[in-house]
Design a protein around this nucleic acid. Sequence first.
DNA 1: ATAGGGTTAG
Length: 594
Amino acid sequence: MVKNSLHWAHNCTTQHNPPPFQPKGPSILATNLIKSYFDKGLIKEARMLFDEMPERDVVAWTAMIAGYASCNHHARSWVVFCEMMRKSKENPNAFTMSSALKACKGTNSLSCGGLVHGLAIKLGIVGCIYVDNVLLDMYAACCVTMDDAYLVFQEIHEKNDVSWTTLIAGYTHRGDGYTGLQAFKKMLSEESEANAFSISIAVRACASIGSHTCGRQIHASVVKHGFESNIPVMNSILDMYCRCSCLCEANQCFHGMTERNLITWNTLIAGYEKSNSHESLYIFSRMECEGFSPNCFTLSSVMAACANLAVLSCGQQVHGSIVQRGLDGNLALANALLDMYAKCGNIVDSHQIFTEMSLRDLVSWTSMMLGYGSHGYGKEAVELFDEMVMSGIRPDRIVFMAVLSACSHAGLVNEGLSYFKSMIGDYNITPNQEIYGCVVDLLGRAGRVKEAYELIEGMPFKPDESVWGAFLGACKAHRLPNLGKLATKRVLDLGPNVTGTYVMLSNLYAADGKWGEFAKMRKLMRGMGSKKEAGRSWVEVRNQVCSFVVGDKMGAHIEWVYGVLDMLILHMKEEAEYVPPDLHCSTYDVAERT
DNA sequence: ATAGGGTTAG
């Protein structure tokens, strides 16, 4: 009774005569502090303060929801939103909604996002540009198509820069750079001027469709409008040149930048990784000299470069550095590591990384299967594929390619064919040139050349060089020069880039002992002035990678190479009565594919 | 007091 009347008295005084220095209700100070804790990444401190607040209003709740979302703790952000819906007497406002929708986007949860959308309509807070823009973003990120996102976009009465950028990013991030660029052009023609945000994503769109022509145009307008000092804009231009294989321009761009951040370096390192891994590692060392500390992105490109160069000891050093920095829980890095060990010939460590991973994605499984396949463990790769499907991961075209090529190398023809059928029938994946190439290779290696030919004839599109190349390989292996000749004719019909085909055909004649035809073909090739780069092999001797071609007699440290090769041959002989070809004086295989 | 878009890894 006393308590009740006191409570009443308290309410009475605050309502009629509010004391100026003791504001009732939740502390504005505490809410401010929660936000600044999150800004500094002090998540636990923010939570503790929030838990200690005796009263929480919408603003305090929203600060928590927004804080978690901004620190990429999207699931927690959503939990707090749900808690607020149960406990708070106040309704969420537009601020709350946009934060909650950001969390839905972050957890990729369309159902939650739809729920919030419905609630926003019920409470009458759609039409607020902040809410509409993030709704657009959520639908763009969570839906299979852009249809719903575009509906939201159309409904926005006064579209601003953010609406346009979000729309363009929606198309571009799902790989439809073409529509993204169209939207960018529409934005320019309709109302808005380009800003740094829309330019960055438009340049990304150019990169994704491989159009350095469009990219260069936007680069020119960047110079004209004075965006050259904006680092994200310049980073995306740098990335565009790298992805379009314009490494000269990329270099110019990089050196012209007055200010660089870690992403700038990462972009260049990743840009060089595929085409020039040596240079990529050199850029990495320069980056460290200039005082930048590598992160997950840097190290995964560096690891890929080590894998390409097959420098095991280097890769192991980077592995050490990853553990040292506490980054060994990173999924992409673990994927890069297992790929590196496999490509450096160390399938045991590769598999160990795979087993120790607490989380695996499609890339992890694919890399492990490719590793198994290239080491001749076809059966293990097939088992891994089934295990992956059992664990609930839906295979894509690339993982099918991995398992098909593993089957092909291990002679598991019927298994491979059944995966090919399952890919089309169960997963609705239409085979492309590479997949057909794999299946032709699968049949061809097993000597089922006629079936391979029938498969090619039944393809719904024109087979390219890779498909005919696989077929030619089979003709050579099974000594079918006439069929090979026919296949060669078909490749030559395709266009001018055919040096590899001549090499294969000439080797086909050689394998069949038709030295006259062989010589004729080689003469023809010399006349064309074309050169196919010789396939190289390599061994690591005393921490050095020694690379050589078949029949090499004058490479650096060639005596080491032959020493290792002799040792390998000895091992093989002991293992399986293997009879090696005469490696030291191979005459016709100089430019053979490896 | 609380909310928005852009750049890097297979």
